[in-house]
Structure formats: C-alpha cells, structure tokens
Amino acid sequence: MHYTSSSYFKIVMIAALVFVPAMAFADNGKASSTAVNIGWASIGCGLAANLALTSFKLARKMIPMKVLVGSGSSQNLASTYSKILNFHIILNSIGFLLGLFHGYLLLRGLDYISLSLVVVMTVSMLSGIILKYASGNNTKFFVRLVHSQFILGVMLVTLVLLHVITKWH
C-alpha cells in the first residue's frame, strides 16, 4: 500500500481528533481521569522509545552482528538502526506532546518536581531535534554530547519516579 505525504498528514490530523473527547472529559474529579491517563501514556511512550534504542545499542555492543541482524552485512545493520531510530524519534515526540498536554491540563498541581521534569524533557527534546537536523559538524558534535549524557537519562528516570510517587498520594 502506497502512502503519500498528504495522506500521512491526514492520518495525523484524524489521530489528533481522538484527543477532542479526551479534553472534554479531562480532570473531571475522578481519580483515573483522562488527564492522568495521558500522563501514563506519555510515560509509556517514553519507556518504549528509549528502551528500544538503548537495548539495541547495548545488544550491538554485546551480541555478534550475525545473531542480531541475520546476514551480518553493514547495510542491513544500518537499515535496522535507522528504523529503530525513527521509532525512537516518533514515539518520543508523541510522548513529549502527551506530557505537555498532561501538564497543561493539570497545571494547578504544578510543583518543583514537575517543573524540573519539564526542564529535563525540553532539553532532551530540543537537543534531539537539533541533532536530527543540524548540519554543522561542531553543532552536531556538541548536541550529540548533550543528548547522549548518561546523567540526563538518570535525571529523567528519577524525576519521573518522583513525580509519580508524589502525585500518587
């Protein structure tokens, strides 16, 4: 089945319409409101996107290529990596937007942990976008260093856990 760019755009727009009823019923006083569920969806997207890329990178280092991609050709490996990278980008973009949406709907409960989480998520997202589309070598090198810092990932996981724990009560 062949899709054009306009058909993809239409699919995205139709998918966006799904959120209209969600917004109408958001934060309706129930414990499991849609606004809270959007937050869980954001966490799920982030987990799936980052675990996929991290596990592939770890596997590439630890497991022989023949086992990982079949034939062992570098072209096959590159195409597999490209697919996983695109999956990482798309799911993280969706997760970031869902997180943004969740944050704005529950803006009343803003605290320092949530604010810190927003800062870390924004830095990660911006560095990721720049990394994807930057053309200069120095810029790319700088943004790659920022985006792939281990401490950034640790902070993200810690803040998400703290956010869930504090809001759970």
């Binding site: 605290d111 320092y112 830095v123 260093l145 920022v146 803040l159 703290l162």
Partner: peptide, 19 residues
C-alpha cells in the same frame, strides 16, 4: 522540593558547559 529544581538546573548547565 525547591532544591530539586536547582539541582536540575545546575546539572543541565553542567552538561552544557561540559559538552
């Protein structure tokens, strides 16, 4: 909790400066 935000800002600034 205020400290959490300051630690985050400090860590991100350190990452940027280090890079």
């Amino acid at each position: 909790l205020d400290l959490v935000l300051w630690i985050t800002i400090f860590a991100i600034t350190s990452i940027i400066v280090h890079s």
